[in-house]
Design a protein around this nucleic acid. Structure first.
Lengths: 332, 332
DNA sequence: TTGAAAGCGCTAACAC
DNA sequence: GTGTTAGCGCTTTCAA
């Protein structure tokens, strides 16, 4: 690999001059010298050595998106947005998948202390003390989920608006007996989603019956139970909203097992969109949230934090949008 | 962060002595000194600076798993195995998600030239010239898919055995009119899978009718077409094998749209296993492949390559295993 | 068994 | 506008 020294030798100048030109932020270099250096760098395929640079500047120039499981439907869009912004800012974006064997915060802190990256963004909180440990270690972070403990360090979606949109859509197309399948019992986010959903319906004088409020443990097989209760109830709902796309997929499958047809017998609306939503049969009506933009903003904010600015927490737009497909049908 | 210098000062020895002890591979240090140093390192929470070390050794100590899309069902298991082995070897494993905007090989090569990682493993080939470009750039790599162009640098699964097992299972439980839904038309791997599957059946004097051989484009909605052909054919198959778990999921959904029940009307067997297989209704019978071990071996081999040994290409065991669930039923 | 010293490639004062 | 210089934290050869 070519180094500054090579370019300097090639151009008959000092490496400090080359360094200035390569960094591009210094005008105290003559046009001629600059052009000569740039040309040499190009032809020698020069790439600055991130290790040497980082050793000097105490910055690796890399940021990490930490996650426990790659397969969530929403990740590709977040990652793509994040990657796009990272390219624009000259940062290197890696994903880091902490394993069940590790204490997530600890392994991230260790890695950052080794100088492997400068900051981290994440969606899930792998364990209770996660945020506090990052904070105690002064590891710059951005949360993609709003949690009370996060303070100002979040870039999140407007889930209140999302669930209100979901509720209003069902009401708009005539549904009155409505169910809701949330996720992750007892989390703050779970509560927030539920109350936004129910609140929007209440404004329209629609109440969600307690026996139609569910919370599904993703890891288990609770969908079967939910589907049974939905399918066999005396007053079956005409529509059910779910708090994720995957939940909708599983619910439809489980309902099928109960001989409940979607959308003929019951309409299902998901939350978040992904290719699966369109592939699925019936294609899933859902609420589209701006994940790509969230990814972009998260990296941008991490960049700001690394540079000493710390603007307040942020809710990214644009507003949620209903994607109408096959799984919801108006109530005649 | 504590440095070697801090520890040296703390113990009243030279930093070179500390360096030897920290690396752990040098016996030319007295027991007493060693213990003292180790204790100091512990209490100061010393972490070697990967940038400084890498600058000197010309090794970053990081390897990358490159992929285009995180959501594939098989990745978590590969990643977990890879991560596990990386921990054992003292390597740092990052995922790198190349974007559609970039030339994948080029961006990986650039990053490696910056010294950000030493080698790369990957499952998919993002573009035709990928391998050749990596090779031309002398970037160490391991492919998780066997391709002719890869040479010896692969660690792959025994898909021939997998598809034979799949075929034999269906035959064992009495099916004779059998269909097959492959993926990715015209790829080498697609051809290999198909011929292994058909070959195993032919040995039992079962022929797969040409109109029951499908290749589904994942991105499109071909599943509906396939399901229609399967469902409406005069001689409907009693069982259909698919080349992925996701294919099985989509196929079941699409068949449902044709009022074809699984497994009552037709048995479906997937390929590869993942949590989705158990969650799905009907739960999916499938062929379990040793992905975790593949991930482990890939990192191990990358490590070997980085250290100058280049053993031959490798097919990892143990042999495939049929996971019997609900989607297949014996033919009476 | 331990220390001295050079240098990996780069940045950033500072001097000219 | 350009060069000189010191040093980031570490490894490794050589000498003691």
């Amino acid at each position: 690999m070519a180094t500054l020294k090579d370019i300097a030798a090639h151009c008959g100048v000092d490496i400090s001059t080359v360094s200035r030109v390569i960094q591009g932020r210094d005008i105290r270099v003559s046009k001629v010298t600059r052009a000569k250096i740039l040309e040499a760098a190009e032809s020698l395929h020069y790439r600055p050595n991130a290790l040497a640079r980082g050793l000097k500047t105490r910055r690796s120039g890399a940021v990490v998106f930490a996650l426990s499981n790659t397969t969530r439907y929403v990740y590709p869009e977040i990652i793509d947005g994040a990657q796009e912004k990272a390219e624009e800012l000259g940062l290197c974006l890696f994903l880091y998948c902490y394993s069940p064997r590790q204490a997530a915060a600890e392994s991230l802190i260790d890695l950052s202390h080794e100088g492997r990256f400068d900051g981290v963004m994440f969606h899930d909180l792998p364990h209770e003390s996660f945020i506090e440990e990052l904070r105690a270690a002064s590891l710059p972070f951005v949360s993609l989920n709003r949690y009370e403990s996060v303070g100002e360090r979040y870039v999140c979606l407007d889930d209140e608006a999302g669930f209100r949109a979901q509720a209003n859509y069902l009401a708009d197309i005539g549904h009155r007996r409505i169910g809701f399948v949330g996720v992750k019992p007892d989390s703050e986010i779970s509560r927030r989603c539920r109350s936004a959903f129910c609140g929007a319906l209440e404004e329209r004088r629609i109440t969600v019956a307690p026996n139609l409020m569910f919370e599904c443990d993703f890891e288990g097989l609770d969908f079967v139970r939910v589907a049974t209760e939905i399918g066999s109830g005396v007053r079956r709902p005409t529509a059910v909203a779910t708090a994720s796309l995957a939940t909708a997929v599983h619910l439809v499958a489980a309902l099928k097992g109960q001989n409940v047809r979607v959308p003929e017998d019951v309409s299902i609306i998901g939350y978040h969109d992904a290719p699966m939503g369109a592939w699925h049969r019936p294609a899933l009506t859902t609420v589209r949230m701006p994940f790509r933009i969230q990814g972009r903003r998260a990296v941008e904010r991490l960049y700001d934090i690394l540079n000493g600015t710390e603007p307040g927490g942020e809710v990214v737009g644009p507003p949620p949008e209903i994607v109408e497909r096959e799984s919801c049908t108006p109530l005649a």
